[in-house]
Each structure stands twice: as structure tokens, then as C-alpha cells.
Design a protein around this nucleic acid. Structure first.
Lengths: 155, 155
DNA sequence: ATAAACCTTGGAGTTAAATCTAGGGTCAAG
DNA sequence: CTTGACCCTAGATTTAACTCCAAGGTTTAT
């Protein structure tokens, strides 16, 4: 059981943000005290952590609402519906991971091309690194890649 | 050589967005016609694609500006500086990939737990899936994971 | 029993990133 | 030589996601 300030501190956000999430239907406290103070349960906190993680990973609050709506009325959904919605989000996540991997390899190329010494960076070019990586990009975007996790990053 | 509308169409953004990027120092056309029309080169287009990819992957325009600033005055930077900046961005990207992988596995758990049939989704819970995945989360965050690329997602 | 530190609501302000509007030039096709 | 599809600038508006403020009620520690 947390008061709003306690939960906020626990999750390193502002109380204002919690009230904002409530107003927008993402997270309502399970109850109120007689005086009207919001009371959040451990379950509410878990939900909040889910929201924050989804946010950190680039989902908008609207998308998160959509994800959480599964939770709210799950007894009214068929299992197949839930699976469908989750799997479509899962696809988005997988696609985003692929994009990130492509981007990471862009940066990696630049880092690799750079000697790292004290001399001028005349020959270090983000765009050069980009160009040389362009052929590499497509296979990353399309299809699941079991071998592109994280490429060795040394030197 | 592209006029603003051509480049916009090529990259599926609005001309307004290109002018906006120019105003904010992310991408200026290499030249103008006598009439004042913006003229973008292939190099400008590559820079734009870099911007769009970075954006898709969750970087803010300010962060992207910082990344691109390397390009602008690279001759005034030491190679070590460039490498430092790039490597720190690289760390951010790797961290984000880790977060996304954790999130993906959350969703995967839910999908797996869900029978996918026509019956009520009473027992499919995003939060349940979250709980059971909580122990799994930390090893993903810390350290490079060569084997967490993308887990089989079928069924 | 009172001050400090909480909490409440309603509404205004902020920031990032566009997106739109108004009022005009430019250019190629018929 | 005009019409429609472009382009220009400057500035206003929008949207998401907070963040802050005012005016007041509640709790807690001294």
C-alpha cells in the first residue's frame, strides 16, 4: 500500500505524472482513504513498472493503453484475441530491435573506422560509415536474424 | 539533386519537416536555385536517412544533432574525441536493445502462456507474465548478450 | 495545537516535433 | 499567357507527455 508520493519516489517519477496517468486511464489507484488520498497496491505498482518499461522502450501512452486493455477486460476476450494483439505488439518490438541493431552497426562501423588517437578526425565520417553499411542494412530489417545479436565491439 | 518535394516524397516525410530540420540545424540543403528553391544532393539525402533512422530508433533531434556535429567539424576534433562520443552513443543503443529484449520477452511470455483458442482469456495476464519474467530481467540489462538476439517467436 | 510536509482538484504552462495557414513567387504544359 | 503544381517565408496551431501553480484539506512530529 503506497500513498502517491511513496509510489512516485519508488519509481522515480513525479506525483503529477501518476495523476496524469490516472486521468488518461493508464493507472488508477485501487482505492482511496476517507480523506480522498490515493492508495496504490503492489499490483498497481507492478502495472506502473510495466508502463514505465514500455515507455522506456519507445511505446507511446496510447499504445501502452492498448496493451493494458487486455488486462482490464480479459474475461471478455477470447484467448485468440489476446494472443493476436500481443503478437502484433511483439512484431513491433522485434522490428524495433532490428532497427536498433542496424543503427548500432552504423555506429559500430564509425567507431571501428576511427583510430581513436590524438590526431585530427578528418577521416572519421558518420556518413562514410553509413554508406559502407548500407548493403548490410536490408537483411537486418527483413526477417528474424538469429545471428545478429550484438557484434563484437572491440577496436 | 532533389527539390524539397522530391526528397520529401522519397523519404516519406513532409516538406514542412525538411524546413523544420533546416531551421533546427539538422539538415540544410547544399544549395539554392536562383529563385531560392532548396536543392538537396545525394549526400544530403544520406544525411536525412541517417536522421530518420536515428529517430525511428528513439533518439531525440537534439541527440541526433550531437551525433551529426561530429560530421560538421570533424577536422577540429581529435580522433579520440569522436570515438568517445560515438562509443557513448553506442552504449546507449546497446542498453536500449537490452531493454527492448527484456520487454520482448515479457510479451513473449504472455503469448506463450496464452492458448490462443476461442475460450475466455481469464488466465492470460500481462501482469502475470511480467511477474514471472522479473527474475529474468536483470541479466539482460547488464552486459553484452551474444545469445539474446531474437528468440524464436513462432506459435 | 501548530507548523511542516503531505495530499486534493482544476487549470495553466512547457517542450519537442511537427503540421498548418496566409500571402505570395516560380515554372512547365497546353 | 494563364492555370495548376510547385516553391518561398513567417508565424500560428497541434499533439503528446508532462510539469507547474493556486487554493485549500489532512497528517504527523514536536
Amino acid at each position: 500500500m503506497y500513498k502517491i508520493g511513496e509510489l512516485a519516489q519508488l519509481c522515480e517519477i513525479k506525483t503529477d505524472t501518476l495523476r496524469f496517468y490516472e486521468k488518461h486511464g493508464l493507472l488508477a489507484p485501487s482505492s482511496r482513504t476517507d480523506a480522498g488520498y490515493r492508495i496504490y497496491t503492489e499490483n498497481d505498482a507492478a502495472r506502473l513498472r510495466f508502463i514505465l518499461r514500455a515507455k522506456a522502450v519507445g511505446f507511446t501512452l496510447n499504445e501502452i493503453t492498448e496493451l493494458l486493455s487486455i488486462e482490464l477486460d480479459k474475461s471478455n476476450w477470447a484467448c485468440a484475441d489476446v494472443k493476436g494483439l500481443v503478437d502484433s505488439k511483439l512484431e513491433q518490438v522485434v522490428a524495433r530491435i532490428a532497427e536498433l541493431n542496424a543503427f548500432r552497426s552504423s555506429l559500430q562501423n564509425l567507431s571501428n573506422a576511427c583510430c581513436g588517437g590524438p590526431e585530427s578526425a578528418e577521416h572519421c565520417s558518420i556518413l562514410d560509415a553509413l554508406e559502407t553499411e548500407q548493403g548490410l542494412e536490408k537483411p537486418l530489417i527483413k526477417g528474424v536474424n538469429h545471428h545478429n545479436a550484438i557484434v563484437k565491439a572491440e577496436r
